[in-house]
Write a protein that binds this DNA or RNA. Structure first.
Length: 483
RNA sequence: GUCUCCAUCGUCCAGUGGUUAGGACACAGCUCUUUCAAGGCUGCGACACGGGUUCAACUCCCGUUGGAGACGCCA
C-alpha cells in the first residue's frame, strides 16, 4: 500500500474551530495509525480575508492539542502560478471553457430562473462561443473565468465512511475554477494541492460531499487517480445545526482559556462521531491511535455536549498530578493577582490536592482556594447565624488553646485533639468542625477541615480563629458579615 | 425549492437476524461523610412510522416522515 499522506486544510478565519480540530484529530489518528504523514496546509486563496496572525492562531491551537504535523504549513497563496499552469493542460482536453458572463449578468439570470421556479444552474451561455467571439472578447480585454464542462453521466465515489455516493451529472453545474483575476477557486486549488502533495486520503467534514463531485471532474480532466475520501459527520450544536460561531464557543483556544485540559478536549471530541467499539469513555491519544478505524466512525452528526466535556475535564483534572496542575495553574492564578511562585511550592501542591476533585475547570481553582491566599473579607452570612453562636464560639476558644499545644501540626494530630474535645464535651463533631471551617475560610463548604488547618499551619490557624473572638458581633442581633 | 447525507434513551456512543436493547453525560432519589464536590447504589429514559424479505427483525430492502448539509468569481 502506498504510504499514507493526509492533510488538514483550514482556512485562516482567526481561530481554530472545534470542528476543524476534530477533523485534524481524525486525520492525525489515521496518519499515525498507518505510519503516514500528517500535513498542514493553509487555504488562503481568499487573500483579502487571510492574514499571518490568523494562521498563527490555528497553529497555536494545533500545538496546544499536541496534534503535531509532519509537513507544512504550506500556503495555497504561495502556489498561485501553479494553478494557472494547469489551465493550459486542461484546456487541451477540451474539458474547460472561458466564460465572459459578468457576476451581474449571472445574478440577473439566476434571479429570473428562481422567480420562474426553475432550479438555477449556470446556463452554459458561453459554452459554444465561436472562436471569433472569443478572440474579440479577449482583444477587448473582457474579463473571463474558466469553467469546467460537465458531461452527461453520473459521478460517484466510494466513501470510506458512507460507502457509495453518487449523483447525476445533470445536478452538477459547470463550475468556475479560475476567477477573472486569475486566482484559483477553492475546488480547483484543493485538487491541485492534494495532487501535488501526494495526498492519499482526504478526510474532511460531511459538508464537503457536494464539493467532491466537482473535484472528481477535475481529477478526471487531469487524468489523475483521485485520493480516497472519508467524509466525517458534522459536530452539531444543541439545535442540531452545524456548530458555528452563532452556536456559542467554537474557538479551541477559548477552551484552553477556560481551563480545559488538552487531553480532555481531545478525548471528548474524539468520541463525537467515533468510538473504539466498546463502552470506554476515557482514552488517551495513544490508545485512540491504536484503535482508530473508519468503520467505527459514525455517519450521524453529533451534538457538542458541554456538560459531558465538563465532566470529562474534571476527570482529567483529578487524575493529573499536583505537579502538573501546578504548572498549568500559574497563569490562572496570575489572572486573580496571585503569583504562585511567591509561595512555598510544597504548600501550593497541598492546596491543589485539597480541591482538585471539586474543580471542573482550571479556572475554578483560584476561587476554590482563595482564602488560602487572602484574609477573609466576608464570612458567609447564613454560616454566621448557624455556627457563630456564643456556645460554639466558646468551643472554638477552648480548641484554639488546645491546638496551640500541638507539636507536630498535621491533620492527624489536629483531628486527635478535636476528637478528644468532642468526647470530653460530649458534643457532635459538626458542632466544632463547621464553626472552625467558617472561621478559617469564611465559607461553609471547602476542603477537608483538618487538612485545611495543616495547610494553614498552626500560627495562621490560631490567628484566624482568634480574629473571630475579637469581634463580638457574631450573635443574632448582628446583621452579619465582617468587611 | 433541487440534490446529497442521516435516523437506538434529552445528549454522546455499544449493538451488526434470535439481547430482560448495554455503557457514559445529564436528571431524580438513596448512601457515605466533616461541609461542598467526588465516590457507591438505584431509578427515569430509546430502536421515527409503514410496508416487505425471513421461522425470526433495532439489525437487510423499499417507501413515508423528520433532521442536517450543499447549492458563491467563500473556503
Amino acid at each position: 500500500m502506498m504510504a499514507v499522506r493526509v492533510r488538514i486544510a483550514p482556512s485562516p478565519t482567526g481561530y481554530l474551530h472545534v470542528g476543524t480540530a476534530r477533523t485534524a484529530l481524525y486525520n492525525y489518528l489515521f496518519a499515525r495509525k498507518n505510519n503516514g504523514k500528517f500535513i498542514l496546509r493553509i487555504e488562503d486563496t481568499d487573500v483579502e480575508r487571510s492574514s499571518k496572525e490568523m494562521t498563527d492562531i490555528i497553529i497555536e491551537g494545533l500545538k496546544w492539542l499536541k496534534l503535531d504535523y509532519d509537513e507544512g504549513p504550506f500556503f495555497q497563496s504561495d502556489y498561485f502560478s501553479h494553478y494557472i499552469d494547469h489551465i493550459e493542460r486542461l484546456q487541451k482536453t477540451g474539458g474547460i471553457y472561458r466564460c465572459f458572463c459578468t457576476p451581474e449578468e449571472l445574478e440577473e439570470r439566476k434571479r429570473k430562473a428562481i422567480s420562474e421556479k426553475r432550479a438555477w444552474k449556470y446556463d452554459r451561455k458561453c459554452l459554444n462561443l465561436s472562436q471569433e467571439e472569443i478572440e474579440k472578447n479577449l482583444k477587448e480585454n473582457k474579463p473571463f473565468v474558466w469553467r469546467v464542462f460537465i458531461p452527461e453521466g453520473k459521478t460517484g465515489f466510494n466513501d470510506l465512511i458512507h460507502g457509495l455516493i453518487e449523483k447525476d451529472n445533470s445536478e452538477i453545474e459547470d463550475f468556475i475554477i479560475i476567477r477573472s483575476d486569475k486566482t484559483p477557486v477553492y475546488n480547483f486549488a484543493v485538487v491541485i494541492d492534494d495532487y501535488r502533495m501526494g495526498i492519499t486520503h482526504v478526510i474532511r467534514g460531511d459538508d464537503h460531499i457536494s464539493n467532491t463531485f466537482k473535484q472528481l471532474h477535475i481529477y478526471r480532466l487531469l487524468g489523475v487517480k483521485p485520493p480516497e475520501f472519508a467524509h466525517l459527520p458534522l459536530i452539531l450544536d444543541e439545535k442540531r445545526a452545524k456548530l458555528s460561531k452563532r452556536s456559542g464557543t467554537v474557538s479551541v483556544l477559548s477552551f484552553k482559556d477556560m481551563g480545559i485540559l488538552p487531553e480532555a478536549f481531545i478525548n471528548f471530541i474524539g468520541l463525537i462521531g467515533w468510538s473504539p467499539g466498546d463502552n470506554r469513555e476515557i482514552l488517551s491519544l495513544q490508545e485512540m491511535i491504536k484503535l482508530f478505524s473508519f468503520d467505527k466512525v459514525a455517519k450521524k452528526g453529533g451534538v457538542f455536549d458541554y456538560k459531558k466535556l465538563e465532566w470529562m475535564n474534571s476527570k482529567y483534572i483529578t487524575n493529573s498530578t499536583n505537579e502538573k496542575l501546578y504548572e498549568l495553574l500559574v497563569p490562572f492564578y496570575l489572572k486573580e493577582n496571585i503569583d504562585l511562585k511567591e509561595y512555598p511550592k510544597e504548600k501550593i501542591l497541598k492546596i491543589i490536592e485539597s480541591v482538585k476533585e471539586k474543580a471542573r475547570y482550571l479556572k475554578d481553582f483560584p476561587f476554590l482556594t482563595q482564602f488560602f491566599f487572602k484574609d477573609i473579607e466576608n464570612y458567609d452570612k447564613k454560616g454566621i447565624e448557624k455556627y457563630f453562636t456564643s456556645e460554639k464560639i466558646g468551643y472554638l476558644k477552648d480548641l484554639t488553646k488546645k491546638i496551640q499545644n500541638i507539636k507536630d501540626f498535621n491533620s492527624f494530630e489536629i483531628e486527635k485533639v478535636y476528637k478528644e474535645y468532642i468526647d470530653e464535651k460530649n458534643i457532635k463533631g459538626a458542632d466544632v468542625i463547621h464553626p472552625t471551617r467558617l472561621a478559617l475560610s469564611g465559607r461553609t463548604e471547602g476542603p477537608s477541615l483538618f487538612l485545611m488547618m495543616e495547610i494553614f499551619g498552626k500560627e495562621e490557624s490560631v490567628r484566624r480563629l482568634t480574629r473571630i473572638f475579637e469581634f463580638d458581633i457574631f450573635t443574632k442581633q448582628n446583621d452579619g458579615g465582617i468587611v
